[in-house]
């Protein structure tokens, strides 16, 4: 039996004052994990300069690195430059699409992107009323549809979904209830449940909880750095 060892962290929010600090904690990652997934909010202000700093922090590791961006990384409208900077340094950046890695003779499919909000079943916004509300919810729906399609198309022994926003409420426990609609959307979970996956990783909710599951029984882990309280989590899947 081959295990796929997935290291993951989100919300590292790197800035000039902490340059090099995180990198130190990545020492030895090659012995602990087969891949490192970054669940968005890699920067604080979303500038291209910060993107370069993030790329330098995560470049040339002994394991492949796959990332999605978060809302902070979009703040300065430099998300494309940040993604390009990461890609130039060998980091795969998912933007509502997928990639397949070969690990010890097994394949790991990773699908995802930033995700978005809207709330959770029964207590959520819908595509009704003002244009602004409709476009807010439509953005999430479009993302969920892209993930569903990518999951269907990808062929791999195991599949992981990587998001910034949360697909479920359970991993938000600890956050104020009033802001749940800004922290995630059930549409993301529904899309993944409809096709199936082995694990969903997300960040964004700094005061949330690490563990939860979708209504369909897929394990969800909130890997935001303040939630983990350690450099990264390592989740092992049976490679089949």
């Amino acid at each position: 039996m081959t295990e796929l060892r997935i290291a993951a962290v989100g919300d590292v929010h790197l800035g000039e004052d902490v340059r090099g600090h995180y990198r130190q904690r990545l020492e030895g990652i090659g012995e602990r994990a087969d891949v490192l997934l970054l669940a968005g909010d890699l920067t604080r202000h979303g500038t291209a300069e910060e993107g370069r700093l993030v790329a330098q922090e995560f470049r040339d590791l002994p394991v492949p690195v796959v990332a999605v961006l978060g809302n902070h990384d979009y703040h300065s409208d430099a998300q494309d430059e940040i993604a390009a900077e990461l890609r130039d340094h060998g980091i795969t950046v998912l933007d509502d699409d997928g990639t397949v890695l070969e690990i010890n003779g097994r394949t790991l499919g990773i699908v995802g992107g930033k995700g978005f909000g809207g709330g959770f079943a029964g207590k959520c916004a819908s595509e009704f009323g003002e244009r602004e509300i409709k476009s807010f919810v439509r953005h999430t729906r479009t993302i969920a549809e892209s993930w569903q399609l990518a999951l269907k198309e990808i062929e791999a022994d195991r599949k992981v979904v990587l998001s910034h926003y949360s697909p479920i409420k359970e991993t938000l426990e600890g956050e104020p209830l009033e802001i749940y609609p800004f922290l995630g959307s059930y549409l993301l979970a529904e899309a993944v449940d409809s096709v199936g996956a082995d694990l969903i990783l997300h960040g964004h909710a700094h005061k949330g909880s690490e563990k939860g599951m979708t209504p369909g029984g897929i394990r969800v882990r909130n890997v935001a750095l303040p939630v983990l309280g350690r450099a990264y989590g390592v989740y092992c899947l049976n490679g089949g």
């Binding site: 295990e3 060892r5 290291a7 600090h21 995180y22 904690r25 990652i29 602990r32 082995d198 694990l199 394990r219 882990r221 750095l225 303040p226 309280g229 350690r230 450099a231 990264y232 989590g233 390592v234 989740y235 092992c236 899947l237 049976n238």
Partner: peptide, 14 residues
């Protein structure tokens, strides 16, 4: 300030 401590134990998802 979030302290970035060493990675802890692996979790095995059976």
């Amino acid at each position: 300030v979030v302290e970035v401590t060493r990675p802890g134990e692996d979790e095995h998802l059976d």
